[in-house]
Nucleic acid binder design. Structure first.
Length: 295
DNA sequence: AAGTGAACCTGAAGGC
DNA sequence: TGCCTTCAGGTTCACT
C-alpha cells in the first residue's frame, strides 16, 4: 500500500494531530513488528512534545523534542488512524472498520488545551517497523544512508539516471524499484511511470543510455514521467485530505487514475494505441504494461 | 558482483 | 458453505 505518495499523505494527515502536541502516552500491544520495538521505547518518548513530522522515501519520521526521532516504516499493510478522544469532529472519524487485533502501537496525544487524540498504528502483516534514533544521527541511519534521491524535480535528473543505469543489466523495472537508485518508488508507480514514458518494463536499464553516456530520449521521458506521476499522486492524496483525512494510507483518489496497474486485459489508454494491458511477472512481482506502446 | 527468488505474515478473493 | 490456491502497495537474505 504505502509508496512515497501514500506515506506523504499520511504525514500530512497526522501532522495537525501531532506537531506541537505532547506525546503523553505510548502503548505497545506487542513487543515487535517486523523487528523488536526499540529498547525502552516508552521511557524515551513519553512526555515529549512532537516538533515536526517528516518523511524520507517511504519512511515517516516523528521528530520529538530533545533530539529524539521515531522512524516508522509501514511495510505492506501498515496504516495510521486518528481517534479523537473527546472531539466533536465527526468528519475525522475513520470510514473503515479496522481489526483492533492488529492495533500494535498507540500514541496518546494531548494539546496545550487538554484536547486528546489517539494515533493508532495498525498492521496486519507486520512487515512494518519502528525505530528510535537521535535526530542528529538520522542521516547515518543504516536504511537511510544507502537511499537514492527523492523523485522530486530538483533531486532527480536524466543525467543522474543515465549514470546509474549505464552498467545495469537488470530490467528497467527492477532498476527503478531499487531504493538505492531512486528512493520511494514502488510497484504501482514504477508500472505507471514506465507506461507514461512508453518504455517496456523488460528493457535492460543500460539500453536507455547512449554510448556517449548521455541519457536517451526515452530516459528523459521516463525521468519526467517519474516526477509527474509522483507529484500527481501526492496531489490526489492531498486533495482528499480536505474532507476525509487519509490517515489509513489508502490511495486517496489516485487509484482511479491508474493507466495500467491492476488493469489486466483492459484497453490501453494511450491515444491511438489499440493494445490491451498485460500482466507479467518480473522478479516475483506483477508488472502491468501495454506491449504495443511500451517499447 | 550482480541479479533473481524465497522468506517474513495475514487476509481477501476466486475457483471448485 | 467450505476448502484450497493465489495474490497483495516492501524489504532483506540466501543462493546462483
Amino acid at each position: 500500500m504505502p509508496e512515497l505518495p501514500e506515506v506523504e499523505t499520511v504525514r500530512r494527515g497526522l501532522a495537525p494531530f501531532m506537531e506541537g502536541r505532547r506525546l503523553r502516552s505510548l502503548t505497545l500491544n506487542r513487543p515487535d513488528l517486523r523487528f523488536p520495538l526499540p529498547k525502552d521505547f516508552r521511557g524515551r518518548v513519553e512526555g515529549r512534545h512532537v516538533v515536526t513530522l517528516a518523511r524520507r522515501a517511504k519512511y515517516l519520521i516523528i521528530n520529538l523534542e530533545s533530539e529524539v526521532s521515531i522512524i516508522s516504516h509501514l511495510g505492506m499493510s501498515g496504516s495510521f488512524r486518528i481517534e479523537e478522544v473527546d472531539g466533536d469532529l465527526a468528519a475525522f472519524h475513520h470510514p473503515r472498520s479496522k481489526d483492533a487485533a492488529h492495533d500494535h502501537v498507540v500514541f496518546g496525544m494531548v494539546d496545550d488545551r487538554g484536547a486528546e487524540a489517539r494515533i493508532i498504528y495498525n498492521d496486519p502483516r507486520r512487515f512494518g517497523f519502528m525505530d528510535l534514533v537521535e535526530t542528529g544521527e538520522l542521516d547515518r541511519y543504516p536504511a537511510f544512508s544507502l537511499l537514492g534521491p527523492e523523485p522530486s524535480a530538483n533531486m532527480l535528473s536524466a543525467d543522474y539516471l543515465a549514470a546509474r543505469f549505464a552498467t545495469k543489466k537488470s530490467p528497467v523495472k527492477a532498476a527503478l524499484l531499487d531504493q538505492r537508485v531512486i528512493a520511494g518508488l514502488g510497484n504501482i508507480y514504477v508500472c505507471e511511470a514506465l507506461h507514461r514514458a512508453g518504455v517496456g518494463p523488460e528493457r535492460l536499464a543500460h539500453t536507455l543510455v547512449e554510448k556517449t553516456g548521455r541519457p536517451s530520449r526515452q530516459l528523459e521521458e521516463l525521468t519526467r514521467a517519474i516526477r509527474d506521476v509522483i507529484a500527481e499522486a501526492i496531489e490526489a492524496g492531498g486533495s482528499s485530505l480536505r474532507d476525509h483525512i487519509q490517515t489509513d494510507g489508502s490511495l486517496g483518489y489516485f487509484q482511479h487514475r491508474f493507466r495500467v496497474y491492476d488493469r489486466e486485459g483492459q484497453p490501453c489508454v494511450t491515444p491511438g494505441c489499440n493494445g490491451l494491458v498485460s500482466r507479467i511477472v518480473q522478479s516475483g512481482r506483477s508488472t502491468f504494461h501495454c506491449p504495443v506502446c511500451q517499447r
